[in-house]
Computed example of a mutant assay.
Amino acid sequence: MFEDSGNKTITIYGESVKPGEDKWIKIPIDRLPTGTLIDIPIYVFNAEKPGPTLLVQGGLHGDEINGVEIIRRMLYDNNFKIKNGAVIVLPLLNIFGFIHFSRQVPDGKDVNRSFPGVKNGSLAARIAYQVTHEVLPQVDFGIDLHTGGAQRHNHPQIRFTDDFLESRTLAKVFNAPFYFATSLIQKSFRKAAYDRKIPIIVYEGGESMRFDEYAIKEGIQGVLNVMKYVGMIDKIDPMLIEREVSEFLTKRKWLRAPTAGMFVPQVLNGSSIKKGEVLGFVTDTFADYCKEVKAPYDGFVFCINNQAVVNQGDALFHIGASTGSVI
Rank of each mutant, 00 (worst) to 15 (best):
R196E: 10
E218M: 14
A125I: 03
D22Q: 14
S16T: 04
F178E: 00
S102R: 10
I273A: 10
R210C: 12
F263T: 05
N112A: 11
S102F: 11
K197T: 14
S183W: 01
P258M: 07
E3W: 04
G219D: 04
L55E: 02
E277T: 11
N120T: 11
S272I: 06
S102V: 06
L268F: 12
D288I: 12
L145K: 09
A260G: 15
E134T: 09
E242H: 09
N112Y: 03
I327G: 07
L145I: 08
I29V: 15
Y214K: 13
V301K: 04
G280M: 08
N46K: 14
I143Y: 00
H61I: 03
D195L: 14
G320P: 04
F300T: 01
P116R: 04
M74Y: 11
E247F: 12
T259G: 11
P106V: 06
D107A: 06
K253R: 09
D144I: 00
Q104T: 15
P116V: 03
E247N: 13
V17G: 02
D77S: 14
T250L: 10
K253F: 04
A295D: 14
K172Y: 05
I185M: 07
I10Q: 01
D288K: 08
D4Y: 04
Q307F: 04
G85L: 09
D110Q: 07
E134K: 01
A215Y: 05
D140T: 07
H100K: 15
Q157S: 14
K23R: 15
R72Y: 13
P116I: 03
A125N: 05
D63Q: 10
F174M: 14
S325C: 09
D110V: 08
D144R: 00
Q138D: 07
W254Y: 12
P177K: 01
I198T: 14
A260M: 05
Q312E: 14
L170G: 00
L255F: 08
P106N: 07
V309N: 04
D4K: 03
F164K: 01
P199W: 01
I99F: 10
F164A: 05
I71S: 02
Y289G: 09
L54Q: 03
N120V: 06
S114G: 09
M1F: 11
I29L: 10
I233E: 10
I71H: 04
K191S: 12
E48L: 07
N46Q: 13
L316V: 06
F2P: 04
V230K: 00
W254C: 01
H318G: 02
A260C: 02
L268C: 08
V226D: 00
V89M: 08
A260R: 15
I88W: 00
V245K: 15
S167C: 10
V139S: 04
V230R: 00
L32P: 00
V111L: 10
R168K: 13
E247L: 13
T161V: 14
E244W: 06
R113Y: 11
C290Y: 04
G261L: 07
